[in-house]
Design a protein around this nucleic acid. Sequence first.
DNA 1: CTCTCATAATACGTATACAATAAACGCAAT
DNA 2: ATTGCGTTTATTGTATACGTATTATGAGAG
Lengths: 239, 239
Amino acid sequence: MSQRQPRAGNGVGKNGDGAKRHEEIYHSISTAIIEHRLKPGARLREDALADVFGVSRTGIRKILQRLALEQLVTLTPRRGASVTRPTADEARDVFEARQMVECGLMHSVAQRATARDLSALRDIAQREHDALRRGERSIAIKLSAEFHGRLASISGNTALSDFVEGLCSRSSLILAVYGNSGHLGCESHDHDDLIGLLENRQGDKAQAFMSSHLDAIEASLSIRDEEEESPDLYQVFSG
Amino acid sequence: MSQRQPRAGNGVGKNGDGAKRHEEIYHSISTAIIEHRLKPGARLREDALADVFGVSRTGIRKILQRLALEQLVTLTPRRGASVTRPTADEARDVFEARQMVECGLMHSVAQRATARDLSALRDIAQREHDALRRGERSIAIKLSAEFHGRLASISGNTALSDFVEGLCSRSSLILAVYGNSGHLGCESHDHDDLIGLLENRQGDKAQAFMSSHLDAIEASLSIRDEEEESPDLYQVFSG
DNA sequence: CTCTCATAATACGTATACAATAAACGCAAT
DNA sequence: ATTGCGTTTATTGTATACGTATTATGAGAG
């Protein structure tokens, strides 16, 4: 995503180093959305955000634009920003895309995964377990997205892993809208099983497993268009 | 030096068409990059762009941010924007991603393509031929990217087709950096052949053909790290 | 003659001020 | 009572001003 790593070392700090500050704010908002602390439909007023984070609207606007391009927030011309509420079509598209890309990546991932990679995955999976055990569903969802993103990054293909990362973020929104409260998206042991397959370099099995895994997540949702707030009276009374 | 007046007179700065105006400007810059009228490495000064298009730097900044997120321009913290010069690694990643996604989409595309879709594709391919015949290589490259993007959009999956569109734009940059001047990327009859396969609903063949097509494009490039801008003179003259 | 350091100029980062517009509220009329 | 219109308010869109960093230029010393 962001390619701003030029200043290595060099303790400037003079200007407050806005770039880093903005990155922080971006992460705060992004995480809040992925963890469902900001629910789809929530309005994000520039003034309020500027006030909360202690920067001016200029910086906030930049961040909102970025989030809009990642489809996490929706920018309506004269009405401001709000957390995106994915449509049913978008939800299906996202999962179809994840099927294609994440599964297609598994061969390469299984081949390239190092001990360090597997260790990092295990750590995320462990934290996911912990969060589930504590009943913190929001945290678990965020960690699940992080797991899938990290997994894709092992492929070494930045174009594809960035894409997967964005899809996983959007999946988190989809879970918020179409998820059944009783059923969590990822079965808790799935990720562990997948790590095992990678460890044994079983690319084919890992691919098939990922496909089932994603199918299971999608199947646990009820993806259908919600009734609109102002129902179509013509259709209602036409039959 | 163009003495571009700040377009006084007509309904100048009136606020209403701001969004549309920005979209125009975005398209202008984006097209100029894809058509290689702005070459990789070219610097894009905010003041100059603001002057050229008759808007203030604020709007230009917004557009540059968007282009940066699409990886068409690179934003360096205190040095401004320039047209992205893809690295060899990025080039490989982009073509690997295109292989996976564009090929993976062909089944769905072959199944869903309507007569109208095929007609639109034929039109683009025809214009591509014309451009090549006139020797306008830049236009042909842009039309080729448009062809691939339109093709992907037939799948109906917005998430994936938007991704492909971005990859094609980046491919255009890659052609600019790593392309051999003598050899154009796409063989001119390839697109026509592909349309024929789609028309006959031969998804499998279309997928295989697309794979070869992309391989051919990639093979026509010389993707290797270029020498740095400050070449090592000792090494140059040592042999 | 070349290299280095200082100074000036250029260009970006951020904040703030102003303008325009869409939503919300209230009032009035049917 | 409900609908339609006018006013008010709140929020975004745009421009501009100022501060700071980077770069280019020139002078001086080696």
